[in-house]
Design a protein around this nucleic acid. Sequence first.
DNA 1: CTTAATGCAAACCGTTTGCATAGAT
DNA 2: ATCTATGCAAACGGTTTGCATTAAG
Lengths: 154, 154
Amino acid sequence: MSDSSLASAGLRTTLPRRLILNILENSPERHLGAEDIYRALHEAGEEVGIATVYRVLTQFEQSGIVLRHRFDGDKAFYELNDEDHHDHMVCIECGRVYEFIDEAIEQRQREVADAAGFVLQDHSLHLYGVCEGMKTTGKCSMPKEGAAEIYQVE
Amino acid sequence: MSDSSLASAGLRTTLPRRLILNILENSPERHLGAEDIYRALHEAGEEVGIATVYRVLTQFEQSGIVLRHRFDGDKAFYELNDEDHHDHMVCIECGRVYEFIDEAIEQRQREVADAAGFVLQDHSLHLYGVCEGMKTTGKCSMPKEGAAEIYQVE
DNA sequence: CTTAATGCAAACCGTTTGCATAGAT
DNA sequence: ATCTATGCAAACGGTTTGCATTAAG
């Protein structure tokens, strides 16, 4: 599974790459920063350098394994590219990222680009606001930490 | 004009602030990076430190004079906030930024957020692609440089 | 055995900050 | 005269890179 993604991407199957792919596949959070991944690695007792994390993520992005997003703010977020395009809602209180798709919006975007003679290659749509959980209970429904132990290579 | 924006924002009318506001108002490019502004200032013979440029832009943003955008890539872009909301198309070849509005998209966004119980506060929609000019002539229609001389305080 | 991947530390780039000086009200 | 804004240089956070070492095919 993981290994075949690496192979088909033309990447050697190394420990760091398998570990990072594993985290991306099994983390309860789909959208992770490089530092999150680095931390998870270390909490799982794996000694991988931060430079390697960045290098691997860049390679993953280039081979289409991963998507890189830049939300408002400084750092980048990575998520597994499972081919079904979606846009993002970002909670400005808990920082959690939700996904959505709206075909009507997608369609309109194409039309807008078309009308401007613009050859559309990509787009990003980010909605910023306060999520249900934070609004009502003041607490997030999904746990953010403590899931590091599950990141092991089989 | 410029000065009253500063005054009503509760900002002292200083030379750097007037100069920067002037650049934002008179540049042929509506979307500028901090470095662009810094460069324009120097090309106009004005000695303003880069730290001041950043500080002023931050204040302008906080007082609503300016909007800050983060497109794909590292640096931030600033544009005058003329109140009429719009989204952006960014040409990945010439780097130029185009604006557009589509009420249908705006409406759908509200609906999507609503359906998710999300309290929408802001959003960003960026279309990335190749603009008309770059596609057809391989050259940009609008000049990018050489307009620095016009940035003077009256 | 050959070539590519890793770890470390140093470099980087855009941006921010501390502090002494200059400027606005 | 007071208090804020500026310039400089140093610090910063996220990310990248050079190089000697280690691991993959």
